[in-house]
Write a protein that binds this DNA or RNA. Structure first.
Length: 224
DNA sequence: GACCAGGCACATC
DNA sequence: GATGTGCATGGT
C-alpha cells in the first residue's frame, strides 16, 4: 500500500532539508519589509524585488508611515525595477491605507485577530490574492497558513499528488490536512520548495540531481 | 530574441 | 464559471 500523503510530504521535506538545509526565510529584515516584498514579488524574480527594496531604503521610505504619505507616482518610480510598478505602487498604498483605516497603522493589532478573519480581510484588498495574503500571514505574522506558489503547484503536479488544474485552495489543503499546523514547519517547507523549484522545477528544468528525483515523478508533466 | 520570474484583477464569452 | 489579457523589469 502506498504511503499516506502526510508521510510522502514529510519524506519530501526531509529530503529537501537534508539537501539544502535551513533557508532562513523570509529574506526580509522585518515584518514590514516582508509585507512590502510579498507585494513586490508578485510574478517577479526576487532579484528585481531586491533592487526595488534597496531603492526604497535609500529614499528612506521603506516603512508603512512613509508609504502612506508618499505620492503614488513617486513611489512607482522608486519600485520600477520590480516591474508592474504602477500596479504595485497602488497595491502598496491599498495595504497601508487599510492598515490605518482599520487598525490605526498598528501591525501588532493584527495579532489579536483570528487567522481566518484576518485572511478574509487581506483578501478583500485589491492586489492581495491568496499567495500574497498567505505570505504575509506566515512570514510576516507567524500564522500557521501554508503558502502555495507556482513552484508548489508544479512540483506536486509532477509527483502526481495533485491533478493538473488544481486550484489554490485545493493545493493548500493538501498540506494543511497532512501536516501539523506549525508555522516554523510551513515556513521552512515552502522556502525549500522555492529552493528546489528554482534549481530543478522551472518549466523546462531537468530532474537530474533533484533531491526529489528518486520519488515517483513525471518529468514531462507540463505545469499544473 | 524568446522565455521566465515566489500574481492579481478585470473583461469577455 | 472558465478562459484570456494587461501589467513591466531584468536575468539567462
Amino acid at each position: 500500500m502506498a504511503s499516506s500523503t502526510g508521510e510522502q510530504l514529510m519524506a519530501f521535506y526531509d529530503a529537501l532539508y537534508d539537501a539544502y538545509g535551513p533557508q532562513h526565510w523570509w529574506p526580509g529584515e522585518s515584518p514590514t519589509e516582508v509585507i512590502i516584498g510579498a507585494i513586490l514579488t508578485q510574478n517577479t524574480n526576487w532579484t528585481n524585488v531586491e533592487k526595488a527594496i534597496v531603492r526604497l531604503r535609500e529614499a528612506d521610505v521603506l516603512g508603512f508611515e512613509a508609504l502612506r504619505d508618499i505620492d503614488v507616482q513617486v513611489l512607482a518610480e522608486h519600485i520600477r525595477p520590480a516591474g508592474y510598478y504602477n500596479v504595485k505602487a497602488r497595491r502598496l498604498k491599498t495595504f497601508v491605507e487599510w492598515l490605518w483605516r482599520e487598525h490605526d497603522g498598528d501591525l501588532s493589532a493584527l495579532e489579536r485577530l483570528p487567522l481566518e478573519s484576518l485572511r478574509e480581510q487581506l483578501l478583500q484588498l485589491k492586489g492581495i490574492g491568496p499567495e500574497t495574503a498567505d505570505s504575509i500571514l506566515l512570514y510576516a505574522l507567524g500564522r500557521p497558513t501554508f503558502v502555495v506558489d507556482a513552484y508548489t503547484a508544479r512540483i506536486l503536479g509532477r509527483h502526481k499528488i495533485i491533478e493538473s488544474g488544481a486550484d489554490y485552495h485545493e493545493i493548500k489543503s493538501v498540506f494543511e490536512n497532512a501536516l501539523p499546523p506549525d508555522p516554523a514547519l510551513f515556513n521552512e517547507y515552502h522556502a525549500l520548495f522555492v529552493a528546489v523549484g528554482k534549481r530543478h522545477c522551472r518549466p523546462r528544468a531537468r530532474c537530474e540531481g533533484c533531491p526529489l528525483e528518486h520519488f515517483e515523478h513525471d518529468a514531462s508533466t507540463p505545469d499544473a
